[in-house]
Design a protein around this nucleic acid. Structure first.
Lengths: 183, 183
DNA sequence: GCGACTATCTATAAGAA
DNA sequence: TTTCTTATAGATAGTCG
């Protein structure tokens, strides 16, 4: 999108890379903002700071957060149930998880955790001064990929459960509900 | 970016809004992907599905992401493994989780917990203009709370497992490793 | 390193199928 | 509806101050 076509490959030139980073980051931020307004949806992006980049691959922080969410909408099923065997154990575990995430959800609402978390820093060394360098790009891709994986995982779990004669019918878990970014 | 200029305002027309949503979502995904490649950084985006939007406040996008990540690095453990019974199934699942978290921990250290999450938006009412009002600390608290809950969950899992005569001893799981945001 | 200024390139809004 | 075209709006690469 400029004077000439640019190959999508790591930009080795330092200053050039930084410039591109800043420009595109801003562009993505804008696009996300517009999308949320246009379609009335919630969206966010997390773009790590270039300076923090090493040869590291992906977003550990995100993953961590993700792990948690995994249990979010899970259950709220029937509480206080006692399990006698592994089968019921599994069921209970799922229910508990669900409840846990439900609570979290409520908590979040109350706090109105809401809005933006404009600048979140979690650098081990708290380099708060570098806030401007961050970008919001690959979050979307990451999310979709992960959602897919979750679905697959859940599907396989269900499959496995059936193989093991576990009845998950009373657990109305719909893997599709995880596909947020795909209307 | 099309045949005519579009006002950045909620699109009331249903089909039109959905179409725009899909298009722009894909566009953002691509841009994020490109940015991460071009600049060698990590980035991700969470875009909630239009259909899922209700009074949902914050966590929905995040939670979704989380759900996904939960499994991200999960397997790849030993693929094609077959499980013979529920017990081994559970164990395997826990082991995988453990491995995942270990990897995450390492990753986090290397990346130094990744950099910043510069702007995170997901106001229930899309008050993007209020970005300045948010408190960065809320995010940290949120993460920590979730991590605590995960810990509890895992602990209860362990406990339950023991009750059911499942031996988890060979799984050295340290809940503290979940406290990412707390140096 | 940060804006500003185009020339271009890309994303995408309308339409058509 | 989803998919394709196509004409444009918008993003941004290369440059200059």
């Amino acid at each position: 999108m400029g004077r000439r076509k640019v190959e999508i490959a790591y930009i080795t030139n330092n200053s050039n890379r930084r410039l591109t980073f800043r420009r595109r980051k801003n562009g993505i931020m804008k696009m996300i903002k517009e999308l949320s307004i246009l379609c009335g949806i919630e969206a966010c992006a997390i773009i790590s700071d270039e300076n923090h980049h090493e040869a590291e691959v992906w977003p550990s922080p995100t993953e961590v957060v993700n792990v948690l969410s995994r249990f979010k909408n899970l259950s709220e099923h029937e509480q206080g149930k006692r399990m006698l065997d592994l089968e019921s154990y599994l069921k209970q575990r799922i229910e508990k998880t669900q409840d846990q995430y439900h609570k979290l959800k409520m908590e979040n609402k109350k706090k109105e955790m809401a809005g933006y978390i404009e600048k979140y820093m979690c650098t081990k060394e708290f380099n708060f001064g570098d806030a401007h360098l961050t970008n919001p790009n690959d979050f979307t891709d990451f999310i979709n990929e992960q959602l897919k994986e979750v679905k697959q995982k859940l599907d396989s779990m269900d499959f496995q459960a059936q193989e093991d004669s576990i009845d998950f019918d009373d657990i109305d878990f719909d893997p599709n509900e995880f596909y947020l970014a795909t209307p």
